[in-house]
């Protein structure tokens, strides 16, 4: 168990395992992970391809459920959660930024940003006003009525960050957020995530190959073959 001294833990995993059935054999995504991440940390998940970064992130995001072990995030037991509870968890607790942006192609920037709040049952006008603020803060004011296909990579990723922020999640997850960006835009995105961690004390977990986030990370978790190889704290 590795916990940051003094802060309440937001993520607690014990013996966390996720295996997949592939034909006749079982493939291990992650296995026997014990992890505690306190509120307000900026953690990076590192490791080679296939080390289990994305699997762990998917479990933290409530996109997938563990095969065994336990996982509690912000008091939500994700191992035992029902489908409906997971949906609510994704709406209320986490925001996620994907490597390939994953914006809905038929929705404008503003609509993409509004969508999670609307799905969470928030009123449209209020959501729209809030989304406009976030979009403006991220420098996308001129692009708010554009479709994703009309945006650059950096703009798309900033839209994805805005979408992840709209429900004020306690946990912000990013899966290779700079993977599809050039170095300049990559740096902007990492700075943004760091700023979100620093300014509001929001917990941020970034899965990444690169070292751009190292300077901001309070905790570096390295995975190897689905297990924690080492944890470095600053």
């Amino acid at each position: 168990m590795n916990a940051s001294p003094g802060a309440a833990p937001l993520i607690e995993a014990k013996g966390l395992t996720r295996t997949y059935r592939m034909g006749a054999s079982n493939v291990v995504g992650v296995s026997g992970i014990d992890l505690v991440v306190a509120s307000g940390e900026l953690a990076t998940l590192k490791g080679a391809s296939g080390s289990g970064k994305s699997t762990l992130l998917a479990l933290l995001a409530g996109l997938d459920q563990p095969t065994s072990g336990s996982l509690t995030v912000a008091g939500n037991d994700l191992q035992k959660a029902t489908e409906a509870e997971l949906t609510r968890y994704r709406r209320d607790v986490t925001g996620i930024v994907f490597q390939s942006f994953n914006l809905l192609p038929t929705l404008t920037v503003l609509e993409n940003v509004c969508l999670p709040a609307l799905l969470a049952g928030k009123p449209y006008e209020e959501t729209r006003s809030k989304a406009s603020g976030v979009v403006e803060w991220l420098g996308l004011r001129e692009r708010r009525d554009h479709l994703p296909s009309q945006l650059s990579g950096g703009e798309m990723q900033r839209t994805a960050i805005a979408r992840a922020l709209i429900n004020d999640p306690r946990l912000l997850l990013a899966d290779e957020p700079t993977g599809n960006l050039d170095s300049r835009n990559g740096a902007i995105v990492i700075e943004l995530l760091a700023e979100l961690n620093r300014a509001s004390g929001r917990t941020v977990v970034i899965a990444t190959h690169g070292d751009m986030a190292d300077a901001y990370a309070t905790m570096q978790i390295t995975l190897k073959d689905g297990a924690i190889h080492k944890i470095l704290r600053k």
């Binding site: 995001a61 809905l104 999670p116």
Partner: peptide, 16 residues
């Protein structure tokens, strides 16, 4: 299918 997965990942229910 991917868009559906995105919708689900940001909080849309299967019923919706």
């Amino acid at each position: 299918r991917r868009e559906l997965a995105i919708l689900r990942s940001i909080g849309a229910t299967p019923r919706m």
